[in-house]
Design a protein around this nucleic acid. Structure first.
Lengths: 242, 242
DNA sequence: AAATCCTGTTAACGATACGTTAAAGTTCGT
DNA sequence: ACGAACTTTAACGTATCGTTAACAGGATTT
């Protein structure tokens, strides 16, 4: 139920100072993050286990398991999740440096919310590609006629029945869809998907077209038509406003 | 000991002396606990499996499985549940000391009910945060089909029978669960859990998938399916409201 | 209409991804 | 330092996918 709330980023905030915690939570939620809070290390770990967390913000000084121990336990479960440490100025930087890994960062109290926000933006930029690859990137579901193409799960669904596509089939169909109702040159498709154009690639492509046509024959309004000597076009009825 | 109304603490009492057992049960119920009784070790373990137990009071001298063996079996299922041993004065304390863990305590017969009550109060205070915070809080238990995954105790339970997972097995299964019914890229899983992606990590992951599948074969509605060249998906039936 | 090129379709092959088991290596508690 | 528990590496079997081959029609040109 708390899972995919749209595509909000889920932040685990562990901070024992109730006031600071509340302020941060408010701010983060205002910035459109989903916030999960905990007030000590053990609870923080429990919350981490329960939720799909995308970013951790951990106070270093925590009861019942300090920030480093907590971070270690989290690292045990997820090697690439970004962690931001909140630390008092007094703390030796070496200790942090020694601990923090590639994806980590730290920020010394007191700090402004803008400062925090900048750090978050930065760390997410650095780590994102690995993390959200599939989640935030782009749209994954394409609607064509009565079909729904899911490029993440590689499925093509119509009226309850589902075909499982291969990666290449899905990629090709997606490419056709992105240029629906316009003719795609054979060469263009080949270069895009195969990276080269020769006789065999050309024939291979035809085989894939055949397979896609087989999948698509349940809805006669969706067609892959050939333009002799030029290429293919995915015919799709336009849904209202486009 | 602020337990919400309707959330009585469930005590498992295992004691073979029928008279003593009855007296203790009366007293505990008078003190507003829910009491589950058993008169030998094996029965005690069975009761433990059937009920949600919050505290165990075990006689050390028991037929069919002594208190220590029973405690070990219980520890196997729940690492943090508090246990109080009832022991005759004669028993060497070392033995108890050696056995009892952080959350455990013992009391030598004969003892007064007040004494017992104090011990219970104390042990619950000591252990409570671990126990109730999370138990009452929210699910730290993931339900998939007829299985229950407990990431704290590393157990996977179905219809009474329990598998003990390793940390890595549990972490992987949890990751799959957090993304249930969507395909997780192999790379993503490897980076998250192993921190790197190479040939051997990849093969190692396959080994873990095999093991998880073995655990999960009791419920045919829960499956780890492979999408060739992409990754894995945990198929789980959606429970009603989601 | 014949000749030639382009496309449609099916089946089979080889490469690669995955499944599984067991042995070797590692870690960890004692 | 030893043994138990766990993870990784190795080895081998199986399944799947993309390509190729082979053949069959159409389309276009002459």
């Amino acid at each position: 139920m708390d899972q995919k709330k749209g595509l909000k980023i889920q932040v685990l905030l562990v901070e024992d100072d109730a006031n600071l915690c509340m302020v941060l939570q408010d701010y983060l939620e205002f910035m459109a993050y989903n916030v999960i809070v905990a007030h000590d290390g053990e609870a923080g770990l429990a919350r981490f286990d329960e939720h799909e967390v995308h970013l951790c913000i951990l106070d270093v000084m925590l009861p019942r398991m300090d920030g480093f121990a907590l971070a270690a336990a989290i690292r045990d479960r997820n090697k690439q999740i970004p962690i931001i440490f909140l630390t008092a100025k007094s703390l030796k930087e070496d200790r942090l440096k020694g601990f923090a890994q590639g994806c980590d960062d730290y920020i010394t109290k007191p700090f402004s919310t803008e400062e925090l926000n900048l750090r978050i933006k930065a760390i997410m930029r650095r780590c994102n590609r690995n993390m959200f690859q599939e989640e935030i990137n782009e749209q994954k579901i394409f609607v064509m006629g009565n079909y729904r193409l899911d490029t993440q799960n590689l499925t093509l669904t119509i009226a309850g029945s589902t075909s499982n596509l291969t990666k290449k089939e899905a990629t090709l169909l997606r490419l056709l869809y992105l240029h629906k109702n316009t003719v795609l040159a054979r060469d263009f498709v080949q270069k895009t998907i195969w990276g080269e154009t020769d006789y065999f690639v050309s024939r291979s492509m035809d085989v894939f077209i055949t397979r896609l046509r087989k999948y698509l024959k349940e809805d006669s309004s969706v067609n892959i038509v050939n333009v002799h000597g030029v290429g293919f076009m995915l015919e799709v009825p336009k849904p209202a406003g486009e």
